[in-house]
């Protein structure tokens, strides 16, 4: 199994930064996500997570620091969170931390809705965008 590292960019489309590390079990998804082909981008991340949870089976900490994602991306995030929930239900140790701008009410609602959808406990960690 290999780590995934993708440097994010904000040009015509917004590519999020990805740092999935199977040795530490820490996975970071950050930046903004508005992609030309959402499925093509997220499929390898979904596959990575499926492999980690079925073969590595160590604790996993999932850190989300997205400041924007479109609805197309929101489906892929749901896929990732559902895998984590299944892993947790099978006895895996899962921590999900979602960092969001304390003024971004839409994002706060999105996180709450993901908790309702998946049944996964997500630690909501607000930050002040102007100072952080």
């Amino acid at each position: 199994m290999e780590n995934i590292s993708i440097e994010g960019s904000h040009t015509n489309f917004f590519v999020p930064s990805v740092d999935f590390n199977f040795e530490t079990g820490i996975c970071i998804l950050s930046g903004e996500s508005f992609l030309e082909d959402t499925i093509e981008f997220y499929d390898p991340l979904v596959q990575w997570l499926e492999e980690y949870t079925s073969e590595i089976k160590k604790p996993i900490t999932f850190e989300i620091k997205l400041t924007y994602f479109n609805t197309s991306t929101s489906r892929s995030i749901l896929d990732l969170l559902n895998i984590l929930k299944e892993y947790e239900d099978d006895g895996g140790e899962v921590t999900v931390n979602w960092h969001y701008d304390e003024d971004d009410i839409d994002m706060e609602e999105d996180i709450e809705d993901y908790m309702l959808d998946t049944g996964l406990e997500i630690n909501m960690i607000p930050f002040d965008e102007d100072t952080d």
Binding site: I39, T71, S72, R75, L78, E109, D113, L116, D117
Partner: peptide
């Protein structure tokens, strides 16, 4: 509306 969005999001693309 939030509940409706969640419902739609579960549908396959």
């Amino acid at each position: 509306l939030r509940a409706y969005k969640r419902e739609l999001r579960k549908l396959p693309p």
